[in-house]
Structure formats: structure tokens, C-alpha cells
Design a protein around this nucleic acid. Structure first.
Lengths: 195, 195, 195, 195
DNA sequence: AATGAATGAGTCTTCATTCAT
DNA sequence: TATGAATGAAGACTCATTCAT
């Protein structure tokens, strides 16, 4: 038998490329860069990926899948609705914000290389279903009107991603923790509960 | 070297490039594309701009200047604070959202080619100073804590830009009007006043 | 190294390659194409053939051998000379013309990969010996002068092959039957006999 | 004003490429070969031609145009029909046979890169119209039947080209002069006149 | 000043062949 | 023996920028 596909190599290529794409952008990263950084011969890159675009697509798809799988597992778990929301804000989102490279790519290149609207649809639906399961506090004066739900989730989600992205490279005086705290605060008020 | 004589030509190059950069991205737009689209000879492009990067920089700087000048003129005007806020939301922001090409470039390329943190600093300061001038309604339960002010402005501003950007190309079921209405609603609640 | 065990596999590779080479040309056919089309693993190709060039050489040599063996068997048979000529024109040539793929390869690639002059020498000698055995009709006014014999056979043979080749792919309004009929007519007149 | 298109350069590229393509074949000739042989930088090749294929197409088209223009000028001239035929055989054809490189390319690559059927159509029509203008000698026993006219012209034309092509590289004992003489002889007999 | 041909480093990608398994 | 991942030289082509005219 001949050598068989080495999943480790594939991952190394993916990780190296992700870092390069995030740092320098897709177009400023050459296959030669990936070759240099991974130490693999060019041919090997093309053994595991169809072309340069395929690499970024796989980065985005697989990165997103992981995030979305986490999100869904929370939604489908048996914990109380409010706990679900808390977990999303305290665990899922921070975890995503941690992966700056992925965010960077998601916001700058993903739109060109993947079907972003599907992802946004799934995201808003999932978040929405978690929110709807929460009994509204009587005193909540600031509930988000039903019609704004999608818009608000999208604006908010994209906003925190973009903010996290910029704050990683540029000095803006905003930390990831600020973003998380702010998120918690906004959601608390909007939903009318204490998180 | 970049001597601008004919302001009309310079603007044509700028407008054409802006549209091309927004549509296809900076790297997918060649100088040859700009030449084809403007009808000018290559040499002419280099008479008005130092290089390709100079073009995108000028697009961003001048686009931003215009937006920021508008914003400042509102802040410095004599109308009551709440009216300032209303004008920002009902005029300044919608005007910016209208200029999809600029937003596109701001969000995807500007970060690489301009000093984004300065712009964000100026933006948050200006918005903040407008907000601070508004006497808080007693009943406002949802005021943004002082410490979150910057974060919230940045998240919000970047969020609406990114949302507007995506919604222009991809079918997400969110219109610019949705974004404006949502903005108005959020601000009203946060500040505790009726806009 | 090129150990042929399974004659069936070897033939499949040869047939598939012949068809591919004829359709797309030697250089536009990759080993990967042959792999895909035969379903064999790459290694197997190299078990039966030394390299890509070896494949085309074998196609040409073996194809030619078959044709030439047929031709010789006619020449060496006991039938009358005129019948030999008739058989060549009515059976051997049509059979060759049928094998478009071989002709294609013979005319476009063979010259580079095999010793074509040997083949032509053998061909003209064989045809010549068949013709010489035919007693010239007294009334034949159009006999080919002895010195033109070789030239005429070569020009004619190459001409019908090339014509058949082109007419297979391009609409020229010439069929294989036209070529055969024309051949018969020319030979009849040249040799001064009725075929 | 900038430098203007240099027709000399274009021709040098064309001539060099023609020689290389004829010698080594289209696929065995790299752009790097053309660069080395012409001494021009790569970019210059692409200033004058769209791509590699464009080069071979131009070689074929322009070479053919020249040949065909000559042929037509004979057909349309005022000399007697038989003289036209003689000129074709003694001048036009030999001239074409001289241009081995062109023939080589015509026969091996042209079919893939140009519309060969159009050329053949035009060729047969032109030759045919010259032949038809010649009053048939009463004693001509070997006239080509009308239906075979096209086939015979095509087979003959392609045959002499292919023969000339091979005889240039391989020792077959056939010279260009043999081909011309043979042609003259065949035509004389077929048409029933003395050339 | 205006022009556009000239330039060549650098891009992505291919593919015949090998050889570890 | 059978396999197919590994390899890297070589391929065609691009394009921002310059500079001769």
C-alpha cells in the first residue's frame, strides 16, 4: 500500500494559512509563504487542497462549523433558557472572540468565499430561539420589538466581531472583556433579566 | 509625480476606482481596470496618484472627511442636544449607509491602508459629546454605564456598517431602513428619550 | 519496472490511452487522465509501461505492426497480383482508415516518437512489389514512371491518411468511402486495369 | 507620446516562434524558449500576443493568408488557364513547400488552433475553378470524374505537404523537386495536357 | 505634460515519476 | 506486487510601475 492521507499535514497547512491570511490578508499571502511557513513542498499543499481559494474556504467553513456546533449544542441542551443565554455570552462568544484569526478572515474574506447569508440566517435563528424561550420579565421596559430581533442580532454580532478584530491590532482602548461585559449588560437590559 | 491639475480627471479616477474597489476588492482590481473604466491612459493615473495604494487611501480619507465634517457641523451647531442626536440618526447615518462603496472599502481595505484608530477615536468622542449634552430622563432604566460608552458606540457603529455592507449584496432580509429604525429605537431606549 | 503480467490490463491502458491521445493529443493527455479513464491506480500504469512516451510508442508500433502484417500477408499470398491490389484497396486500406485514433496518432505524434522512415520504406517496398507483379495493360497511357513510384505511393498514402483524419473531425464533405472510391479510381487508371 | 507598437518586434517573435514550433512542436516549446531565442523580456511577448496559442494562430493565419493570396492572384490574373495551372505548380506550390516550418505547423498544430475546413474549402474551390477553365483535351482518358474533384485535390494537397514535411527531417530519398515533378506529371495526365 | 510600450519579479498551478508502505 | 501520496522543477501568465518619446 502507498502512503495514506495525513490529516496532520492537512491541519498544519490549515493552521498556518489561517494565521497568514489573518495577518497579511488573502491576497498578500502567497502559496510560497505557506510553503515556507509549513516547510512542506508546494506539491503537498496541492495534494490536500484544490487551490488557494479552497484553503480559505475550508478555514472559514470548518471554523464556522465548530462555532455553530457549539452554539447548537447549547440550544439543544437541557439547561434552563436563561442559563443557555448565559453560556452563550460567557463561553461561546468569548471563545469565538479568542480566535482572532478566524474573525479576521470571516469579516474580510469570508464574504467573498462562502455563503455568508446562510450562516447569518442560522445564527439569528438559533439565538432567537434561545431568547424566545426566556419568559419575559414583567418589568422589562426595554424589550426589543419582535420586528427588530433579526436586525439587532445581526448588528450586534457583526459589531462585536468587527470591534474585536480591530482592537486586536489597533490601540482603541477596548478589550475583549469590555466587549463581553458590554454584551452581557445590553442583553440583560434588553431581555429584562439579570445574567 | 502626482501633480493634480485637472480636478475633474482626479475625481473621475477616484469615483471609478471606488466603485471598482467596492465591487471586486482592492486586489482584484487592476490599474488596467481603472484605465479601461475611466478611459484615461495609464500614465494619467500616475499623474494624479502616486500608486495604487495612494488611490484607495485618498478614497477613504476623503470619504471619511466628508462624513466626519458633517458630524462635527451637527455637534457644533446651535440646535438643542436631542435634535443633534436626531439629525445624526436621521440624516448623517443614513447618508453614510447610502454610500455602500465607501462602507465596503472602509470595512475591508481601510484598516490596512489608513489609521483607523484615529477615526474611531474621533467618532466616539464626537458622538459621546452629543450624548453627554442630553439631560438624562429620570425614568431611563437602561442608561449605558459610563464605562461602556465607547465600547457601545464602536460596536454599534461598526455593526450597522457591516450589516449595511452585507445586506447590499446578500439577501438577508434586512434593509437600510430596518437598520435606521433599529438604531433609533435602541438609542431612544438607551438614552431614555423619545426620538 | 514495466513487468507485464496481466495482458488485459495492459490492453486496457493501451486502448484508453490511444483514444485519449487521439482526442486530445499527447500533451493534453495527462497520466491522471489515463488513471481516471482506466480506473487503475497510477502505479499500475508504471507497472506496464516505462513512462508516458513508452505508451504512445507501443500504440504506434503495435498498430503499425498489425497493419503491416496484414499487408505482407496479402503480398505473400497465392492470389493473382491484381487480386492482391484489389484486396489492399478494398480491405487493408479501409480497415486502416477505420482506425481513426491510430491515424491521428500516426500523423501527429508518431513522427516524434517512432522511426517513421523505416515504416515508409517498408510500405512503399511492399506496395511496389505488388504493383510490379501486375502485367501492364498495353493501352495504359498513364503509367506512373518508375522514378515517381516511391513518391507517388508516399504522397498518396499520406494524403489519404491525412484526409481521413481531418474528415473525421471537421465537416469537409468527404467520407471514407469517397477516399476509397477515389483511390480505386486512381489506381485503376494509373495501372491501366479495371479493379 | 509613448513608444509605439513595433512591428519589427512582432515579426521577430513570430519568426522565432515559428521556427521553434516547427522544430520542437508547440508543447515542447516554452514561452521561456521564445524569450531566450528572441532576447525579448517575457512581458514583451505578451505585449504583442495574448497568449501562447495566439502566437501559433497568428503564424498559421498569416502564413496561410500569404499562400492563399498568391493563389488567388494567379486565378484572377489574365493569363491563359493552362498558364495559371503551370504557375501554381511551378511557383506557388514550390514556394509553399519551401516554408517547411509553416507546413509542419499547418499539419500538426493548425488543426487544433484554426478552422482548417474553411481553408480546405477555399483551396479546393480555387484550384477547381482554375482546372474547370481549361478546355479538356479530347484524348484525355484519365480525367478525374467530377465527383472526385474535391477528394482528389484534398488528398493530393495534403499528401504533398505531409511528404515534404517528413522528407525534410527524415531520410526518405524523396526531394522537394521529386514532389514537384510528380505533381506536374500527375496533373498533366489527369487534365490531359502537357505542362 | 501626456502617453502607453516595456519590463521582469513574482504568481498560481501542473504533472510525470518515484518510492514508502 | 500494488498503491497513491509526495515531490519540485517547470510552466504560462500578470501587473504595478517606469520612462522614452
Amino acid at each position: 500500500m502507498a502512503r495514506s492521507r495525513d490529516e496532520t499535514k492537512r491541519n498544519q497547512i490549515l493552521l498556518t494559512s489561517k494565521s497568514l491570511f489573518a495577518d497579511k490578508g488573502f491576497f498578500n499571502t502567497s502559496i510560497a509563504d505557506i510553503v515556507r511557513e509549513t516547510g512542506f513542498p508546494v506539491g503537498t499543499i496541492y495534494t490536500y487542497f484544490q487551490n488557494k481559494e479552497d484553503i480559505i474556504q475550508k478555514i472559514v467553513e470548518e471554523g464556522w462549523e465548530e462555532f455553530y456546533a457549539n452554539l447548537k449544542s447549547i440550544r439543544d441542551s437541557n439547561i434552563p433558557p436563561v442559563e443557555k443565554l448565559r453560556t452563550v455570552i460567557e463561553e461561546i462568544i468569548p471563545e469565538l472572540l479568542q480566535d482572532v484569526d478566524l474573525i479576521n478572515i470571516l469579516l474580510t474574506e469570508a464574504i467573498q468565499y462562502t455563503i455568508i447569508e446562510d450562516k447569518i440566517e442560522k445564527l439569528t435563528d438559533t439565538i432567537d430561539s434561545i431568547l424566545q424561550a426566556i419568559p419575559q420579565s414583567k418589568s422589562a421596559l426595554t424589550n426589543i420589538p419582535r420586528g427588530f430581533m433579526k436586525t439587532s442580532i445581526v448588528v450586534f454580532f457583526l459589531g462585536i466581531l468587527q470591534t474585536a478584530k480591530i482592537s486586536k491590532t489597533k490601540v482603541m482602548g477596548i478589550t475583549n472583556q469590555d466587549i463581553i461585559d458590554f454584551t452581557k449588560s445590553v442583553i440583560s437590559q434588553s431581555v429584562g433579566i439579570k445574567l
